[in-house]
Amino acid sequence: MNNLIFLIPIALFLGALGLGAFLWSMKSGQYEDLEGAAWRILDDDDDRPKQD
């Protein structure tokens, strides 16, 4: 029973982290251009992407 006191919050925290990461990625436009991202990785230019 004692170990549950740690394990359950940890499990919930990790789950919430995943949820938060998904919501953040959606909000910051990570899913706007899925096809383009696949190509951009092949681009050798070492300049940084500009902020939109």
Partner: peptide
């Protein structure tokens, strides 16, 4: 200033 292409929607935003 800069341009950003979105391949999925075939659009380019030009600032």
């Amino acid at each position: 200033d800069h341009a950003r292409v979105n391949l999925s929607t075939r659009r380019v935003s030009v600032v």
